[in-house]
Computed example of a mutant assay.
Amino acid sequence: MDVNEIKVIDKTVKGWLKESRDNVLRKIDTRLTVNTKSGRTDLVTNIDKQNEKFLVSKIREFDPASRILGEEGSGDDVTTTIGRVWIIDPIDGTMNFVKQRNHFAIMLALYVDGEGVLGYILDVTGNHLLSGGPQIGVFDNGQPLTKVADTPLREGLMGLSGPMVLHNDYNMVDIANQSLGMRVYGSAGIDIISVLRGELVGYISYLKPWDFGAGKILCETAGMMVTTIDGKPLGMLSSTTVLLATRRAHRDILTIVGQ
């Protein structure tokens, strides 16, 4: 894809996200309709659904030939990576949104034939946007992202899934112990922003495409590793345990996982 076309898309998407954020904040203190999906900790609200429909409508108007994979089902039944595919997470960290009205994100990604082109993670209440892709670089609130140091596990904080640590999946307790400390934010988007800004050396959780689609693009562009927990390539349509980290921390974690 031509870089000038990418820049036009980038400017357009940032406009959508500003409007999307405004829509969410206008309704954040209203009475929510909250339902469960797979279980009592897997929530969806009327705001999730409304925000996804808003973003789907913008994409349909701007890029009608593309397909859309949305968490709440407003898009298409995407079973192949061929062509242009948009991935939407309208509210990432819905439990945080419901219980705290904070620490949640909106995420959007564009893939073409399975390759990441543009990714966006917006911390809604913090008004903090990480954006970009391999042809234009990564930006932190519009400024080029400061290069993140290649810090090993033992010298950094690690973002981890609380349930996975409690069950010691993949030797997660050892990973936590060998880091300087674990953090559990409850939102993949907020964790990934922290990794990109050098506040965490990595993040591990079971994720679906809308959870990691944008982060995969941004982190790989920034020179980090994004794989399955056992170091295998991560497919765009995968639902699996994802390991996202600096290169040195990634090597350290794979050693622990393999023990």
Rank of each mutant, 00 (worst) to 15 (best):
N177Q: 15
P163M: 08
G119F: 06
P152G: 02
G235L: 03
H128K: 02
S187V: 05
G159A: 13
I121E: 02
A105Y: 06
M225C: 11
G189W: 09
M182I: 08
L200I: 02
D169C: 12
D174E: 14
T227A: 09
T227S: 12
F104E: 09
F139A: 02
M164F: 14
L130A: 11
M172K: 07
V112D: 11
I175H: 09
G114I: 09
M224S: 00
T240A: 09
V148P: 08
M224W: 00
F139I: 01
T240G: 06
K216P: 01
G132C: 06
M164T: 12
G137D: 08
A105M: 10
L145E: 07
D113E: 03
D211H: 10
D191Q: 14
V173R: 15
T151R: 15
K216C: 06
D211Y: 04
G162P: 12
M172D: 08
K216F: 05
I229F: 02
L200W: 02
I192A: 06
I192E: 10
I193E: 08
M182G: 14
I175N: 07
A222L: 06
G156I: 05
G126M: 09
I175S: 06
G133V: 11
T241E: 04
M158N: 03
P163L: 07
P233I: 08
S187I: 04
T146G: 07
T241F: 00
R197Q: 15
L166M: 14
A222G: 00
N171A: 03
K147N: 13
L130I: 15
M236Q: 11
M172P: 09
D150P: 03
G162F: 08
L129N: 07
W210V: 13
T240N: 07
N141H: 01
V148E: 07
P233E: 12
G133W: 02
F139Y: 15
Q135K: 15
R154G: 10
A109V: 08
M172V: 12
I136S: 01
T146D: 11
L145F: 13
S131L: 11
I217L: 07
V226I: 09
V195A: 07
T125G: 00
S179W: 00
D123H: 11
E115K: 12
N168Q: 07
Q143Y: 10
V184E: 04
D174Y: 03
Q143D: 10
P152C: 07
M236S: 06
Y170P: 11
L218F: 06
G223S: 01
L130W: 05
G159P: 13
L166E: 15
I192Q: 13
N171K: 07
F139K: 04
N127Q: 10
Y170S: 13
D113I: 08
G231S: 03
D123R: 00
P233W: 03
M158L: 12
Y203P: 07
S161F: 08
V138W: 01
V173Y: 04
R154W: 10
M225N: 12
G119H: 05
K208W: 04
N171W: 00
K147E: 14
D169Y: 14
D211K: 08
I136Y: 04
I193P: 00
Y185H: 10
E115F: 06
L118Q: 08
R183T: 15
T151K: 14
V201K: 10
